[in-house]
Computed example of a mutant assay.
Amino acid sequence: MWQRFGQLARPQLGMKLGTLGFLGIPRVDFMSLNFNISSGLIVGEISAKCDAEKLGIRAGDVIFSCQKKRVSSIVQLEDVLLGVGAEHLEKSNDLSSKVDVEIGVFHVRKRKKSDIILRVELSDRLEVFHSDDEDAKAVGIKGEEATGIS
């Protein structure tokens, strides 16, 4: 993408994610037995006031697909997201607009799966995370950008 367009374009989902498999055998077994989910990305935290939060995604939910492609690792998700960014650059060559990203989510509290379309910004950086939590306020970074895991 860099060679072709001179920039990168990555959709910003607004979530800190971790691989479900790294939670340990007891947690993975629990998710598999109770929810029939054995792989995916678990949501650790949601960026303040992002589209994911507004659409009901919460910490503990599991992302199992992106753009209708199964994702079980951060690398797979990044590959799909960079593909979305490349398609966008092919059409407009502009990072200032937003793109739609479809994700498959298992809502742990509701015990149901859904496909959600997030309208997200593009960035040439890794995931940008905005936090309004008490820890952020304590160190004086409310509303500033911090790198998320995804």
Rank of each mutant, 00 (worst) to 15 (best):
V80G: 07
I74D: 07
V71G: 03
L55K: 15
E78R: 13
S32P: 00
A48D: 10
L41F: 01
L81D: 00
I42L: 06
R70P: 05
R58I: 02
E78C: 06
V75W: 10
E87F: 07
N93Q: 10
L41E: 02
I42T: 02
V43F: 01
E87L: 08
L95N: 00
V80P: 07
K69T: 14
V43E: 02
F30D: 11
V62G: 07
V43H: 01
G44V: 08
K54V: 15
I57G: 00
V80W: 04
S92M: 09
S32C: 14
N34D: 09
V84I: 14
R70C: 14
I63F: 06
L82A: 07
V62K: 02
A86P: 03
R58F: 08
I46K: 06
E53G: 09
V62W: 03
Q67L: 05
S73L: 07
N93T: 13
I63H: 05
V62Q: 01
S47C: 01
V43A: 01
E87Q: 15
D94P: 01
E78H: 10
A48H: 13
I63W: 03
D79C: 13
D79S: 13
F30T: 12
S39H: 15
S96G: 11
K68G: 10
S73W: 06
L81P: 01
S47H: 02
D94L: 12
G85H: 08
A59K: 07
G83R: 11
G83E: 12
V43R: 00
S39F: 10
L81M: 04
G40K: 02
S65V: 08
E87W: 09
Q76A: 09
Q67P: 11
G83S: 09
I46G: 03
G40D: 04
I46S: 04
S96R: 13
M31D: 05
S92C: 14
D79H: 13
G56D: 04
F30L: 08
R70F: 13
L89F: 04
E90I: 11
G56H: 04
M31V: 08
Q67H: 06
A48N: 13
I74V: 11
E90N: 09
S96K: 15
G56C: 01
E90L: 14
L82R: 14
F30N: 11
K54Y: 11
S92T: 15
N34M: 13
S92P: 12
A59D: 02
S38C: 10
S72R: 08
I37D: 05
V43C: 02
A86N: 09
E45K: 11
V84H: 04
G56A: 01
L89G: 04
L95T: 00
S96H: 14
D79P: 00
E45G: 12
G60W: 06
L89R: 03
R70N: 12
G40S: 07
G40P: 02
V43L: 00
L55F: 10
C50F: 08
I46H: 01
N93E: 09
K54I: 13
V62M: 08
I57S: 02
A48L: 05
A86E: 15
G44Q: 10
I42K: 03
N93M: 10
I37Q: 03
Q76D: 08
I74G: 05
F30A: 09
